[in-house]
Design a binder for these strands. Structure first.
Lengths: 221, 221
DNA sequence: GACGCGCTTCTTGCATGCAACATAAGCTGT
DNA sequence: ACAGCTTATGTTGCATGCAAGAAGCGCGTC
């Protein structure tokens, strides 16, 4: 086995996760080990290990002796995960507000300027990216690595990328969202942990409501 | 291979996790795959899968081509995890307060009575169990399975059982802790989500401070 | 005596083979 | 035609073999 492949194999879990989150396999579809092994030019063993991890993350379901299936979160699970998201991001905003001037703060200021520009030009593609960046900047700015880890896991479980696209389209939502972002940033700048947490939770709650207004595609789970 | 062993193998991950959390292997010690395989009468393959999961959970560290080591959370990580604990349990209390009369509520009332009895008789063994039960009852009572999952993962990362024993011994702490439990329960009974969340967070925060007053055993990480 | 180099040994990482099981198709008898 | 059973196939689950790398030990040299 060539060493270049060994380096690639390091990210096998991420690759397969990307396949699932990217929607390459529709929810409910099977993920045969043999196929993935051939696809990534490794044997079934490392593929199996990766799939077990994905099952642990809740992205796939392994039915013993039957096969591995892409799992879509149920409507209930989405609601539950949004509640968690609200809590974790609130904590992140609170922690960030307690810190002094950090690199993340200026990143947030820049982000808001770009976001408002994107609103004016109706560039929803850029806006989507900026929103994602805004939230992650706050999480990283909390300076709490374990929080970031749990947050990442949570977002993977939500298959968030599949969801946000819809909410962006809601008319008026992006303007409101930007206002909420500004409110959060102001509270952080004022070093008001409680205010920042509250503003963040309000924002996440509002955006969750938006994401949940349209029904989830398939609810067979 | 006998079928009875197949049934046992189902819980192989839990068994190995129990070994680590139970302190059978001191932090920093190696966990040779071959030994575990022989110990549980399986081959190295399923052991490897379990160890990878444990690494994902943060309980062990797999150094490639070297070995698997029991990982002890750093002091910083413990602080970070307690911040998360505070947030998640606050959310749980808030959600439980929003629900009506639930089986969990009466369980909590019973728990408090037993706890107060344990305080009077200085039965710290029983008290420790009751505290654990109190917190888990609230988390389960939140009726949010994803929250419970993340909470369990968090508690495993904290290796909580190793920690609590110390704080119990602090004079006066168990009385204060019981008072805080009562405050939380009252807020839940009054269906006051915000009050319940605040009371819970205060309680977790206080207990965290207690757990962190004594230095962590080995800080080699 | 101390330092550096090579080798031995122990560990993991992966590939592969085989067995077990679930599912579904086909077949037979009624 | 239909129900029940048998068989065929595809999948996973695990055991094992082999190779590659890392750490420690000993030996030789300075």
């Amino acid at each position: 086995m060539l060493s270049v492949e060994a380096a690639e194999r390091q990210g096998l879990l991420e690759k397969i996760r990307g396949l699932v989150l990217g929607g390459e396999f529709p929810p409910g579809a099977v993920l045969p080990e043999a196929f993935l092994a051939q696809e990534f030019e490794v044997s079934r063993t490392p593929v199996r290990e990766a799939l077990k991890q994905l099952q642990n993350e809740g992205l796939v379901e392994i039915r013993p002796k039957v096969g591995t299936f892409v799992r879509e979160p149920t409507h209930r699970e989405i609601i539950e995960l949004f509640q968690l998201k609200e809590s974790l991001e609130g904590l992140a905003a609170s922690l960030l507000a307690r810190r002094g001037e950090t690199p993340e703060l200026s990143a947030l200021r820049l982000n808001l300027e770009d976001s408002e520009a994107a609103v004016l030009t109706n560039d929803s593609k850029a806006y989507s990216r900026l929103v994602h960046e805004f939230h992650w900047t706050i999480v990283r700015g909390s300076d709490n690595l374990k929080l970031a880890e749990h947050y990442e896991r949570l977002m993977n479980q939500l298959a968030y990328q599949r969801l946000v696209l819809r909410t962006i389209e809601h008319p008026g939502r992006i303007a409101a969202s930007t206002r909420e972002h500004r409110a959060v940033l102001e509270m952080i700048e004022h070093k008001d942990p409680f205010g920042a947490e509250t503003a963040m939770r309000n924002h996440v709650h509002a955006s969750s409501r938006e994401a949940l207004t349209e029904p989830v595609r398939s609810l067979r789970n």
